[in-house]
Computed example of a mutant assay.
Amino acid sequence: MTGLAAASARAGRALHSPPEDLTQVQLVWVEKQVEHWIRFGREVRQQVVDRRRRILSFAPGATFALVRWAANERGTVLSRLDILRAVAPGEACQTLPTVTPGGDILLRVDGWPKVERMLQLIDAIEAASIDPVEVAPDHWRHVHNRLAAGETPRGYTMQRHRASLLARRIGA
């Protein structure tokens, strides 16, 4: 089966997968109190719970960015951005609030200055005509490690992206 055919088959299975095979993310939006949103990712299902909550489901292997923000009467109490890879049933994962069963955390930043920096880095990747969903997981880990060390991460160029896609195609 060619790479494209295999990807199509996986996508078709994901659309018809039972919910227990999917990673579910509960998003909450209570204006100026709690705001959760997906910055990028391709969900395969969406369930609207009520006007403030919905649940998005991601197929195993899908990469997505979850932003969580919360405030009280004194101001912001939580600003966090996580880039996750949805896991397959039985696969080891890290737990996260609002994510069931959890995911492979590729990147995590806390605090609005770091979250804002990450949003700018994601914008830069999109400005280079690269879908952040397709970015190599190792790049997100690199960015996480560099930011944690107070260093500037390498940019994700089209050349790096092509190399990542070729490596995926040959199974490296």
Rank of each mutant, 00 (worst) to 15 (best):
A167P: 07
M158G: 11
V67T: 09
V87L: 06
T98P: 02
A124D: 11
H36A: 07
P101W: 03
Y156Q: 03
Q33Y: 11
Q159K: 12
E73T: 13
F58D: 05
A11E: 14
I38F: 08
S57W: 01
W29S: 05
P89A: 05
V49R: 01
V34Y: 03
V67I: 10
T2R: 00
A14Q: 01
R146Q: 13
E43K: 04
T2C: 01
A5Q: 10
A6P: 01
R42A: 11
V135Y: 03
L15Q: 11
A62K: 03
I122N: 01
L166W: 15
A70I: 08
L96S: 07
D21T: 05
L96V: 11
P101N: 06
E20C: 07
Q159M: 08
G150Y: 04
P101V: 06
F40R: 00
L4N: 08
E126L: 07
W112M: 09
S79L: 12
L56G: 02
R74Q: 13
V49D: 14
Q26Y: 03
R54L: 15
D50Y: 08
R68I: 09
T76H: 04
T76R: 05
R146M: 08
P60I: 10
V109D: 02
A167Y: 15
A148E: 12
P113M: 01
R146P: 03
E151T: 05
A128V: 04
R45H: 00
P18G: 10
V77H: 07
H36S: 12
G12D: 13
F64Q: 01
V49M: 10
V77G: 06
Q47G: 00
D21M: 05
S8L: 13
I83C: 03
P113I: 06
A127R: 11
R162P: 03
R117D: 06
V87D: 03
I83P: 02
F40K: 01
S79H: 14
Q159D: 06
S17T: 00
V25L: 04
E116H: 00
A172T: 15
W69C: 11
A65Y: 00
E20Y: 07
R160V: 03
R168V: 15
P132D: 05
